[in-house]
């Protein structure tokens, strides 16, 4: 590594770059971030400062509020891209009639059949059946209510097949 400056360089707030990744707090924060193409915002914490451990010029550790280290934004964005890809695939499946809208709510809320079964207190095989439109259309009201409560939507949304945003996007 030509610029092996990863940590120590952060204390005097530098503009040194680690390849394409800008390290440290740069005033030109926004412009450097355009290259990172994060889906939501430039910083995964929405601008919230987190504490990080840094070595000062005397070699002593000190705690400083700081932005998230840039590579973290990159790998976090990667994880969300994967989730979004799954959501798109799920929507396609529903549009083709190969899955019920429960499949979308499960995927969008980052769950799988096992987790959804645990949250709704049913066996997993039953959840698997509910993902198929045939069984889903025949669900009793109380089961629909269980799902609706979990995802904070109305049972109507499920029966009408409305795809509302996942929980973490609720206001």
């Amino acid at each position: 590594m030509a610029q092996r400056s990863s940590y120590h360089s952060r204390v005097p707030k530098s503009h040194s770059t680690y390849g394409f990744i800008t390290i440290g707090v740069t005033p030109c924060h926004k412009s450097t971030m355009t290259t990172l193409n994060h889906p939501a915002d430039e910083n995964i914490t929405n601008g919230l400062k987190i504490i990080s451990y840094g070595v000062n010029s005397k070699g002593e550790y000190e705690l400083t509020p700081d932005d998230v280290w840039q590579p973290v934004n990159v790998v976090n964005a990667q994880a969300w891209q994967e989730i979004e890809k799954n959501i798109t695939a799920s929507k396609d499946k529903i549009a083709d009639g190969r899955a019920s809208c429960l499949h979308y709510y499960m995927t969008a809320n980052q769950m799988d059949t096992g987790l959804l079964a645990q949250y709704t207190g049913q066996p997993r095989w039953r959840v698997c059946l509910h993902l198929m439109p045939f069984f889903f259309h025949r669900l009793p009201a109380d089961t629909l209510k269980k799902y609706a409560e979990l995802f904070k939507i109305f049972p109507d949304d499920l029966t009408q097949g409305r795809l509302r945003p996942p929980l973490y996007l609720h206001q």
């Binding site: 990744i21 990159v74 790998v75």
Partner: peptide
């Protein structure tokens, strides 16, 4: 620092850069 060096390389690889 060496862990971070790894993370920086990994981030570049993940990003396709």
């Amino acid at each position: 620092d060496t862990w971070r060096e790894f993370a920086a390389i990994a981030a570049r690889v993940c990003k396709g850069r």
